[in-house]
Amino acid sequence: MSVTEKERDILARTLYGEARGEGVTGQIAVAWTIRNRVNDGKTKSWWGEGYAGVCQAPYQFSCWNKTDPNYQFLTSVKQIPFSELGQARIAANQVIDGKVPDPTGGATHYYALSMKKPPAWAAKAKQTLKLGGHVFFKDVP
């Protein structure tokens, strides 16, 4: 699958918005969750098509919600610090290019431990990884 520079940029910005405090390892895990959605095998995925479609699908990744404080950084209204965006780009490219294995075990969902309570879907899903401030899941009903 050919991935455009725009899609790579949107994935990197999503990693910044969702996992900038996690380091490269945590960003790789989030990127793999997105890649697993992109490659879910369905002809038309309800998650969206391609990296940009999945990342920017409404209510899938909160950093793209217009009311989220990260949104202004993702849309370049505010500048993302160069080194932080660079780190996110490295993680995004490593995952897109298949240079790192999937540490999430096929996860398609995660949530941040900073949430007041876990999302309802987590109770019936299979947890695959807990890394930094995120918990990853697959087989989400």
Rank of each mutant, 00 (worst) to 15 (best):
W64E: 07
P118Y: 05
M1K: 13
A29I: 10
L74Y: 05
H134F: 05
K44A: 15
T104N: 07
E5P: 00
G132E: 09
V54K: 06
L15T: 08
K78R: 14
V140E: 08
K117P: 03
A19R: 00
M115Y: 14
A19M: 03
E49Y: 11
K78N: 15
F82D: 15
D102I: 09
E7T: 07
V38N: 04
D68M: 04
S2K: 14
D97M: 11
H134S: 04
G133W: 06
L74A: 00
E49L: 00
W47V: 03
S45C: 11
K130I: 15
Q60I: 12
K66P: 05
N65M: 04
K126E: 13
F137V: 03
T128C: 09
W64N: 07
A19L: 04
V77H: 12
G23W: 00
F61C: 02
Q60L: 14
N36S: 10
T108Y: 12
P81Q: 14
I28A: 03
V135D: 03
A123C: 11
Q72R: 14
Y16L: 02
G50H: 00
W32S: 00
R89V: 00
E18M: 08
P58C: 13
K6C: 14
T128D: 08
M1C: 13
W121T: 14
K44H: 10
A52G: 03
A91G: 01
G98N: 02
T33A: 13
G133Y: 07
N36V: 09
L74R: 09
Q27A: 01
F136N: 02
M1Q: 12
S45I: 01
R35W: 00
T4N: 00
N70M: 15
F61G: 03
L131D: 06
G50K: 01
W46H: 12
K66Q: 14
G48M: 02
R20Q: 05
H109P: 02
P118N: 04
T4M: 09
T4D: 06
A57D: 03
V38W: 03
A123D: 13
T25P: 02
L11H: 02
E22M: 00
F61T: 03
C63Y: 00
L15F: 09
S2D: 15
L11A: 09
A12H: 01
K117H: 13
G23R: 09
A123P: 06
A120G: 11
W47A: 01
D139E: 13
W32R: 04
A88C: 10
F61L: 06
D68R: 02
S83T: 14
L85T: 00
S114H: 11
G41S: 15
A31R: 07
A120N: 15
T108Q: 07
A19V: 09
Y111H: 05
V3T: 07
G41I: 08
E22V: 02
T4Q: 12
T75W: 09
A92Y: 06
T104P: 07
P69S: 09
E5I: 08
I10A: 05
R35P: 03
A122P: 04
S76H: 10
R20W: 00
R35S: 07
G132N: 06
L129T: 11
P103N: 10
Y110N: 01
A88F: 06
S45Y: 08
N70K: 13
K99A: 10
T43S: 15
H109F: 03
D68K: 06
A123R: 11
C63W: 07
